[in-house]
Structures are given as structure tokens and as C-alpha cells.
């Protein structure tokens, strides 16, 4: 149970970073932390202590296996997050070219 709590704290760390940091790069890093915690959460559901990988071999009886589906899901979501992070970094670079700053409080042409 404590490990789920730690995972939730990791999520909150990321959320805190997104909400309070003013630097664009730090916001992107915080988002990554948040997404990692979501992935960790998924993997934890499939994990079982002392369990084996779920591959059936001849002449070998496996008592308990880990659930492979969350791992497959996490692989997919890592790829998506890679794309989104690359996109965000590209946007941050273009924003720096336009505004000459990474400070989000100075990037404020839109309002209302």
C-alpha cells in the first residue's frame, strides 16, 4: 500500500512543478515526472512479488505470473509521451526565439 502512496506523491510533485514553476523547461520536466508516475502506477498493478514473466515453456510449471498487459500499455504510453515531450521542447525553443526568455510570466501576449 505504501508504494501506491509514494507513487501518488510523485504525481503530486509533478503537478506542483507544473503549477508553480515559471521556467518553460522546468514545466516540461514536471510534466514528465507526472507522466512517469502514471506509468509507474500502471506497472504496479501488474506486479506480483516473486512472480515470473508470463512465458510458457515446455516441462516447466509456473505457479504465479506477473500481468503482462500493463507493461504493454506502459510501453505504448512511453512512446506517446516521447512524442509530446519532443513537441513541447520544440515549442519552447520557438517561444525562446520569439520572446528571448523562458520565463512564463513574461510570455503574456494573450490575455482575457
Amino acid at each position: 500500500m505504501i508504494i501506491y502512496l509514494l507513487c501518488f506523491i510523485l504525481f503530486l510533485v509533478g503537478l506542483y512543478g507544473v503549477l508553480t514553476k515559471r521556467n518553460l523547461i522546468k514545466i516540461i520536466l514536471s510534466l514528465s515526472i507526472m507522466e512517469y508516475s502514471a506509468n509507474l502506477f500502471l506497472v504496479l498493478f501488474g506486479y506480483k512479488r516473486d512472480a515470473l514473466f508470463p512465458i510458457l515453456e515446455k516441462g516447466k510449471e509456473i505457479q504465479s505470473m506477473v500481468d503482462p498487459l500493463p507493461q504493454a500499455l506502459v510501453l505504448t504510453s512511453i512512446v506517446i509521451e516521447l512524442g509530446i515531450t519532443a513537441m513541447l521542447v520544440a515549442l519552447a525553443v520557438r517561444l525562446y526565439q520569439k520572446y528571448k526568455t523562458f520565463d512564463i510570466t513574461k510570455i503574456r501576449r494573450l490575455s482575457g
Binding site: 509533478g14 502514471a38 500493463p70 513541447l88 515549442l91 520557438r94
Partner: peptide
């Protein structure tokens, strides 16, 4: 410049909600 700003804002908000959805799926 405004378009990059809007897109960055949209992408950050979208990523937060996507993390929430992923946790919900889990």
C-alpha cells in the same frame, strides 16, 4: 508568437489531463 504561446498552453493542459486519464484507465 501568440500561436506558439497558445499551443504551449494547450499542450501542457492536454498532457495533465492525459495523465489523469491514464491513471483512470489503470
Amino acid at each position: 508568437a501568440e500561436e506558439f504561446e497558445a499551443s504551449f498552453k494547450y499542450a501542457v493542459m492536454g498532457s495533465i489531463s492525459s495523465s489523469l486519464i491514464l491513471i483512470g484507465i489503470g
